[in-house]
Design a protein around this nucleic acid. Sequence first.
DNA 1: AGGACAATTTAAAGCGCTTTAAGTCCTGGT
DNA 2: ACCAGGACTTAAAGCGCTTTAAATTGTCCT
Lengths: 350, 350
Amino acid sequence: MEDGGSGVEGGGSGRHQNGTPKRPRLEDVAARVGLSTASVSLVLRGVPGPSERTRQRVLKAAADLGYQVDRTASTLASRRSRLLGVMVDIHSPFHAELVEHLHTAAEEVGYDLVLSTLTRTRDERTAVDTLLAFRSEALILLGPTAPADALAVLDNKAPVITVGRRIADTALDVVRTADDDGVSQTIDHLVGLGHREIVYVDGGKGAIATDRRRGYRTAMRRHGLGDHIRVLSGDNTEAAGERAARHLLDGGRLPTAVVAYNDQCAIGVLAALARAGVAVPGEVSVAGYDDDTLSRLSCFNLTTVSQSAREQARHAVTAAVERLDQDRTEPREVVLTPRLVVRGTTAGRR
Amino acid sequence: MEDGGSGVEGGGSGRHQNGTPKRPRLEDVAARVGLSTASVSLVLRGVPGPSERTRQRVLKAAADLGYQVDRTASTLASRRSRLLGVMVDIHSPFHAELVEHLHTAAEEVGYDLVLSTLTRTRDERTAVDTLLAFRSEALILLGPTAPADALAVLDNKAPVITVGRRIADTALDVVRTADDDGVSQTIDHLVGLGHREIVYVDGGKGAIATDRRRGYRTAMRRHGLGDHIRVLSGDNTEAAGERAARHLLDGGRLPTAVVAYNDQCAIGVLAALARAGVAVPGEVSVAGYDDDTLSRLSCFNLTTVSQSAREQARHAVTAAVERLDQDRTEPREVVLTPRLVVRGTTAGRR
DNA sequence: AGGACAATTTAAAGCGCTTTAAGTCCTGGT
DNA sequence: ACCAGGACTTAAAGCGCTTTAAATTGTCCT
């Protein structure tokens, strides 16, 4: 009861004016309870040692003062930021999902996230430099496009965990799904429904596109449909899907199914077919990839492939923690199996 | 030429192992050129004073060492983080756009951004605490839902700039667009095309929804169409749009135009109408709000209202800078005029 | 040569916290 | 009584940088 004063500070007392924020420091809390900053620090971090009585008083004082630890100071002092730097493309719904799960996974192991985003005017280099400036202990890069050797150099500054992209023979940690497997599952599904003429709309020359295309080819051959393999050029846009579909429509005979590189592209296909009066899935079945928010819209209800964001996020965090706290040094590649999500755009042959 | 050594450090020399990152410090750079850390600091920050020769040598040494300033240390030492904390909903395409412009605007005035996102398990409180822990000098909150008084309390810790939401009589800075005006423009457009029976699908009870609804009512009356006012309950989801449209379809007589609270909702309307074989815009015109990525998809090509993300972002950063560097203390509210984007879902009455 | 003055450079004191080694107090045991 | 040992506390030394006041040079006059 010998505490000097109590209760919340007078309203508005801490108002920032003339650039004098007056944020309470550890020392202020210490003074309030007549203890050293060392003890207060111990209590606030939950380190065992301080007595129960001290603990209570400190906690109360901190709450009264509205004390909040200053990360910059504690990072500097402890030589640990407990921060995982995450590079994301803020326009990607899939990245959004990953970030969501990264947050919960990181929290469980006592780490925080700092996000740095790619934009039209902000390249990967800038984004990563920002993460490093914050003293991130590890870098989780979502779908980086930088060349493998650049990533390897980066790895010298902080462990790099690449998510969603295959990287040939490097010492980096990689978490991804088997893209070829995903497309393969789609083909199996379609063949199972009786389809034979299945066209694939390509996604360009990236590592991911390459894998998905391979998955298509391999699966077709496996089903003895090597002669029906047909790849139309395209990319990850709706426009590409439309173009491909129009090409098919102009070509006279339509295939019975179209598998697109991703959902955006698939939706372009869908739009073009609808405009031409072709029934989906009545006359033609269509499938995408990514399980984008788009694909779930009831007006599309697109059959697609889900990439298990949750699992990828957890593995990425685990990989980081192993590097940081369990000094693992050999690289690890985690390849997850994607999951086919059958919705309304695929059906048996008429 | 008296520099000790030169060129890039041996490959992989800085490898982190056993948690010993060995990141170069200012002192290392200083030692390399035989100067004090004070001089190096001056050069690296571009402060005038150091001679040209010193400048060159320091810059080279820093580059050779791969030196990168440690934000935590400089923030602590300078008592300035030059950081603007931004709270975003990472799933929102509109926020994504805002962030993109916030980045460029902030960079122009020498500030950096730190992002903190809302997720299903991460509330506004947590997000804001994180921003404060990083010592953000101002908080830019995108579409916060916290009550006005909670925001006012927050404002005592750092200037708060609320974006995209109206806040009644507080001392906070607000940047937003006139939601009522946006809907109003849509109505004007439709009336101009000859429509009279225009139904509005509501967005619920938030501040934004209220404004938009009011815009609808006011505009209808202004055109002498008070008798035709008809508001269907709904929310910000596709499902709500479908429900509303089905209600209209079941009701027998269709209106000639439907204006929805937002694009998601409008797309639900579109889907339901399409399923029922109603031609858009042939029989019924439809309009949304937000100029969502969705609305631009050629398969929707939705007439909608754009919220000028770029301008809102610039104003938000300006407001923050005025508070921080030009000690403005009176609150400012910036209300921008939204812009109607006429696309393919609205047309003259048949 | 001597001194005033401008141009550079730097010593040193922190920023707000963590951490380690060193206390300070009590309890008991003997 | 006295001391070992446990339970708490705390003094003090940084972390990697910025910043201010002061020191060091160099330059130019008279």
